[in-house]
């Protein structure tokens, strides 16, 4: 397994190049590029600028693990408003394009956000139809779309069996699950999600979660690896069982208040322990 971390964690005031240097020094193999999260990678970023970003990544001795986006929360494929849905299609297509430029084969999409106004069944059908269409584009690009499980935030596809059934209905080998082991909260167990969705996992986000704590003000339920309630031995064993050998990507929502660079190093060491099973 290889280690990666998102470019969205690069501290404010640090340039992209400085961030890459830090990621490399901390021991990661790659970087997750977040479309829309940092000034250097936006929808208005041209192809030439994107290629320049990739040159810098390679110069730093890193690979791109995948292309994610921070835009789905406002522009989602489940939107009732066709203009919003079209905007979602555009940024996902841009992810597919840049993934090819960055020589990676996976993107992350948050498909579906259930609200009081946009109910579950509508979201389900619209997401399924949209992903059947996008699956064709992903096949053309030879880039897999990983649908992230943001269980509590999306209030959608809340169990691994339902997630699998949803993927059955999408019925594309180019659409799988980008599994976040921290997002399951009180609704289940990360290791069971790994077992059930195993062959369909495109990438894995690692973070820990404080179960029994809802979001409160600006407090996060997420925390650094080994400080939360995930059972990391079980997660390691389940990864071995399903023979997952792909990218593990750190996604740290809670940031260090001081010595921001230290979080990169500490997280990398913790990821090594998850990979080796020394827990």
């Amino acid at each position: 397994m290889k280690k990666s971390i998102g470019d969205n964690i690069i501290p404010k005031g640090m340039s992209f190049e400085q961030g890459l240097h830090l990621v490399k020094r901390a021991g990661y193999d790659g970087i997750e590029m977040w479309l829309g999260a940092q000034p250097w990678f936006q929808m208005k970023t041209s192809d030439a600028e994107a290629r320049d970003l990739y040159r810098k990544i390679r110069d730093a001795g890193l690979l791109v693990s995948n292309v994610s986006n921070s835009l789905d929360w406002d522009e989602n494929i489940c939107a009732r408003d066709p203009r919003v849905q079209q905007a979602a299609f555009r940024h996902i297509e841009r992810q597919l394009e840049t993934a090819r430029m960055f020589e990676t084969d996976a993107i992350l999409v948050v498909a579906g956000v259930v609200t009081e106004e946009n109910p579950y069944n509508e979201v389900y059908g619209r997401c399924r139809d949209a992903l059947q269409m996008l699956g064709g584009k992903a096949a053309s690009a030879k880039v897999k779309i990983g649908i992230e499980n943001c269980n509590s935030e999306q209030r959608f596809l809340l169990s691994p069996r339902e997630f699998s059934k949803f993927l059955d209905e999408v019925n594309s080998q180019w659409v799988g699950i980008h599994l976040d082991v921290g997002n399951i909260h009180d609704d289940g167990f990360a290791e069971q999600w790994i077992e059930i969705t195993g062959p369909r996992i495109t990438r894995i986000h690692l973070k820990d979660v404080l179960k029994h704590r809802g979001r409160c003000g600006n407090q996060s339920v997420y925390t650094n690896l080994f400080l939360g309630d995930n059972n990391w031995v079980a997660i390691h064993n389940a990864l071995q069982k399903v023979k997952y050998d792909g990218w593990l990507i750190a996604e740290m929502e809670s940031r260090y208040h001081y010595a921001a660079d230290q979080q990169f190093f500490d997280t990398a060491v913790a990821m090594d322990r998850v990979i080796s099973g020394r827990l």
């Binding site: 290791e191 077992e195 079980a234 064993n237 389940a238 069982k241």
Partner: peptide, 17 residues
Amino acid sequence: DPPDYVRYHWPADVQIR
């Protein structure tokens, strides 16, 4: 305790809860 797996090496190399 975390779940553990039985490791089969015949006729397939798999792990079963």
